[in-house]
């Protein structure tokens, strides 16, 4: 059972497009579009949003993302009118990045708070940073990317999903930049391409398993 997502937009096309993008990276997550008025005009449809939230919440709750001001109000009203308003939450996040980050977090089994946090965090600049000193007992592996698109959106999402839930702090390094292995956006920001050599560093009780999974993924060329 995974957290579901609802994309609330003034525009039918915008909502559907964002859903299409997010669904590609999170095949098992219910991501629903609630865009436009019933007649296709620009606007937000309270009843449509309410129905979408109820459908998206399959037991683990739902997270709503919105485009502009009144979509936020409509989303909040819909959540307040649920039989259990605690079952869903409206998050203030960039619509595209936030939905993608939330979808990947939900795919990885994060709970509602975790999914909401992933969406919100997508608003901050991606966490590409100077490499930190290696943690005590950290394990590292150097891997060469052989897949066509490198650490682009889909492979980055696969990498995050492969280690979701493991007790391991994973950092991916390319040259002088380092990214959090749990952040799709940060991984994409590394700009790692085909042929690049990345260094994977993992610490924690399941560091070994995390390394093993990432190595397998790279060897499989991210199933391209």
């Amino acid at each position: 059972m995974r957290v579901g997502l609802v994309v609330v937009s003034h525009s039918t096309k915008l909502a559907e497009g964002v859903v299409e993008l997010a669904a590609q990276m999170a095949p098992d997550v219910t991501v629903l579009a609630a865009g436009g008025l019933p007649d296709g005009e620009i606007g937000t449809d309270y009843e449509g949003v309410l129905a979408a939230v109820q459908q998206a919440d399959t037991g683990a709750g739902a997270v709503l993302l919105y485009d502009l001001g009144s979509a936020q109000m409509t989303a909040e009203m819909a959540v307040e009118s649920l039989p259990d308003p605690g079952g869903a939450v409206v998050v203030d996040a960039p619509l595209v990045e936030g939905t993608v980050a939330a979808a990947v977090a939900a795919q990885g089994g994060a709970d509602r708070a975790g999914v909401a946090e992933a969406a919100t965090a997508a608003g901050a600049a991606p966490e590409v940073s100077e490499p930190a000193a290696a943690a005590e007992g950290a394990r590292t592996a150097e891997l060469t990317l052989r897949n066509e698109v490198g650490l682009h959106a889909r492979p980055a999402a696969l990498l995050v999903r492969s280690i979701a839930g493991l007790d391991a702090d994973v950092r991916i390094r390319l040259g002088d930049d380092e990214a959090d292995g749990n952040s799709v956006l940060a991984l994409m920001s590394l700009g790692a391409r085909k042929g690049d050599r990345i260094e994977v560093r993992a610490a924690g009780a399941q560091a070994e398993e995390a390394l093993r999974r990432i190595e397998a993924l790279v060897e499989r060329d991210f199933d391209e």
Partner: peptide
Amino acid sequence: LISKVGGAAGPLYGT
């Protein structure tokens, strides 16, 4: 009003 207005006025006047 909440279900029919469509714009920001719907949630605002509805509330």
